[in-house]
Write a protein that binds this DNA or RNA. Sequence first.
DNA 1: ACTAAAAACGATAATAATTCTTATTATTGA
DNA 2: TCAATAATAAGAATTATTATCGTTTTTAGT
Lengths: 135, 135
Amino acid sequence: METRKRSKKRQAILDALRATCEHPTAEQLHRQLKAQYPDLSLGTVYRNLSLFADDGDAIRVGVIHGQEHFDWRTDPHAHLVCRRCERIFDVELPLEADRLCATVGKSTDAEITECAFTFHGVCADCRQKAEHISA
Amino acid sequence: METRKRSKKRQAILDALRATCEHPTAEQLHRQLKAQYPDLSLGTVYRNLSLFADDGDAIRVGVIHGQEHFDWRTDPHAHLVCRRCERIFDVELPLEADRLCATVGKSTDAEITECAFTFHGVCADCRQKAEHISA
DNA sequence: ACTAAAAACGATAATAATTCTTATTATTGA
DNA sequence: TCAATAATAAGAATTATTATCGTTTTTAGT
C-alpha cells in the first residue's frame, strides 16, 4: 500500500509550479526554491514532479530543448513554443479540438486518453522585435 | 560552404527509415543496419538522422519513452502513441487541422511554422486484446 | 585516372538529463 | 509518545545524445 504523506517541500514545489504559467523544468523550480529551502535536492524536485504527474496534479508538457517541462494546468489546452525566446505559452484550444480528438479516435479505432498539441514558431513578442530590425 | 557528400551508409540509413512506418529511434536503426554494415557506428546514425531533419528529409517525432523517434513523412500528420504496446502510429489529419493551425496563429498573434499533434491512448490492436480479458 | 580538399566515418570520451541508492529525517496513526 | 514508513539529501549510476579526433571516402578539378 502506498500512502502519500505531506511534506513542506512537496507543497512548496507544487505551489511554485502553480504560481507560474512558464512551464518550468525540474531544474528551474529547484533553482527558484533554493532561496527559501537551501537544502532542497534536485532529485526531490524530480521525484515530486513525477508524483504530481502520476496523481493528475500536473502534466508533462514534453521534452523541449532537452528538458522535460511541467504544467499545473491539466485541462485540455495546447502549447506554443517560441523558437526565438524559447518560452512556452499556453494556447486555448478552440472547440474544434474536441472534434479533432473524436474524429481521430474514430478513424484509428483507438481509445484516446490524452492529446498534446504543440505549435512551434515565433511568438508575438519576438515577431514585433523582428519587425524593428527588418524595418 | 558546407557541401553534402554521398555515402553508402547515409543512404542505407535513409532507405531503412523510409522502408518503415514504425518511427524508429537511432538505436533501432543502428541495430537493424548492423546486419548489413557490421562496422556501422551508432554515432553515425545519430549524426545522419540529425542531418536528415536539418535538410527536411525527415522529422523528429519527439522524445517518446525516453528516446527521440524519427519519421520520413514530412507532410502534416499526427501521431498516436499506444501506451500498451508503445508503438507509434501515423494518423491522417482531417482538414480541420489546417483551420486549427490558422486559428491558433491568429489568436496568439504568432507565426506558426510547425505543429505537432500527438495522441496518447490504446491502439485498436491492444483494445481488442483487452476485450478478451474483460469478457 | 590522379590528387588534394573536405566530408564522413568509427571508436570512444564527454556531456547532460534523469533515475536510483542509501543512510538519515520527518510525518502519521495508534 | 512511539513505531512504522514515507520523504529527503547527497551523490552514484544510468541513459541518451553529442563532440573529438585520427583515419577513410567522396568528390571536384585537373
